[in-house]
Simulated scan of single mutants.
Amino acid sequence: MSNTTPTSLRVVQGVAAHEGVDPMDLEPPLHEVIDTDALDVLYRKADALSVRIEFTYRENHVRIDESGHVDVTDATADRGSSTAVE
């Protein structure tokens, strides 16, 4: 995946990969949980900002660092198992 892939799409792909499901099967859709347009805008402008976001989606802890790297771990676990999306 390239850095031109919207952050919201990388989150969906990361969560789906972590859960071993098709991204289209994720319920509720990510846009019902967070403002995906705002997320994408934040990381398009991230070169001028220091933005780090963490939230829970489908019992997964999603962490997005300053570079837009997406890391998905189990929210209920010790976070030892993770799936990263560049």
Rank of each mutant, 00 (worst) to 15 (best):
T36H: 07
A48R: 00
L26A: 08
L26E: 09
D35P: 06
L39P: 11
T56Q: 09
V21M: 03
P29R: 04
V41D: 09
V21E: 03
Y43W: 04
D65A: 14
D37C: 14
L30N: 13
Y43Q: 00
S50H: 05
D22A: 11
Y43L: 00
H61R: 15
Y57K: 10
D35T: 04
P28M: 09
E66A: 03
D65Q: 15
R63E: 12
V41R: 05
T36G: 05
R58S: 13
V41A: 08
T36L: 06
I53M: 13
V41L: 04
V41M: 05
H18P: 08
D65E: 14
P23V: 01
V33L: 13
V62H: 12
L30E: 11
I34L: 06
D65K: 13
T56C: 07
A17Y: 07
N60Y: 06
H31F: 13
V62Q: 08
H18N: 12
G20Q: 02
I64N: 11
T36E: 07
D22T: 12
E32F: 14
P29E: 07
P28G: 08
L30Y: 09
K45S: 03
T56M: 06
R58M: 15
N60A: 06
A17C: 11
L42R: 01
F55I: 12
A17W: 04
K45Y: 02
H61C: 10
F55E: 07
A38I: 11
V21R: 00
E66V: 05
P23H: 01
R63G: 07
I53H: 14
R44Y: 04
D65W: 12
A16I: 12
I34G: 06
E59R: 06
E19V: 07
P28Q: 12
V41Y: 05
F55C: 09
Y43D: 01
R44S: 03
F55L: 10
V51N: 13
A16S: 15
F55T: 12
E66F: 02
L42P: 02
V33H: 10
S50N: 04
E59D: 15
L49W: 01
F55G: 10
D22Q: 13
P28C: 11
D37V: 15
P23T: 01
A46M: 03
A17K: 06
